[in-house]
């Protein structure tokens, strides 16, 4: 069985999505299967088109937000969405939406970016996460 990394992406700020996406590319490159469970603001960040206009960063570093965005553009750092797409290209990456959050926001799977593969409940995620080598809450 392939080794797996399970990420719970709760945050929808660009700095944390960036960290999640880079960890995903690294894990995919090193041959791990990756499962990303999107919940709350993490799911909101995957609403269709949202990633193009999301410039939020963590509250405690809010003052660095404009500088970070400016540096990312100047150095042409790929966006977190581009990282996830690249990770999917080289490895086995599944992006799953939390069914409860989807319901809460009143969205359907079609309202989300196509990279989101499926809608699942927490129990299914936990069942698979318990066998993972790496589990992170971001």
């Amino acid at each position: 069985m392939k080794e797996r990394m399970s990420l719970i992406v709760f945050s929808g700020t660009v700095d944390k999505l960036m960290a999640a996406s880079i960890l995903t590319t690294g894990a995919a490159a090193m041959g791990l299967e990756v499962e990303i469970f999107l919940t709350n603001w993490g799911l909101a960040a995957f609403r269709k088109g949202n990633y193009k206009e999301n410039f939020r960063i963590s509250k405690e570093y809010e003052d660095f937000g404009p500088l970070m965005m400016q540096q990312m553009q100047a150095k042409r750092v790929p966006s977190w969405m581009e990282n996830l797409k690249a990770a999917k290209e080289v490895g086995d990456v599944k992006v799953l939406a939390c069914s409860m959050t989807l319901e809460l926001f009143g969205w359907k799977k079609d309202d989300l970016e196509p990279i989101v593969e499926d809608v699942t409940g927490v129990a299914t995620f936990i069942e698979r996460a318990k066998d993972s080598k790496i589990t992170l809450f971001i």
Partner: peptide, 9 residues
């Protein structure tokens, strides 16, 4: 000029 993990990818 490309950043981690760009060159590896």
């Amino acid at each position: 000029g490309s950043f981690c993990p760009g060159p590896l990818m």
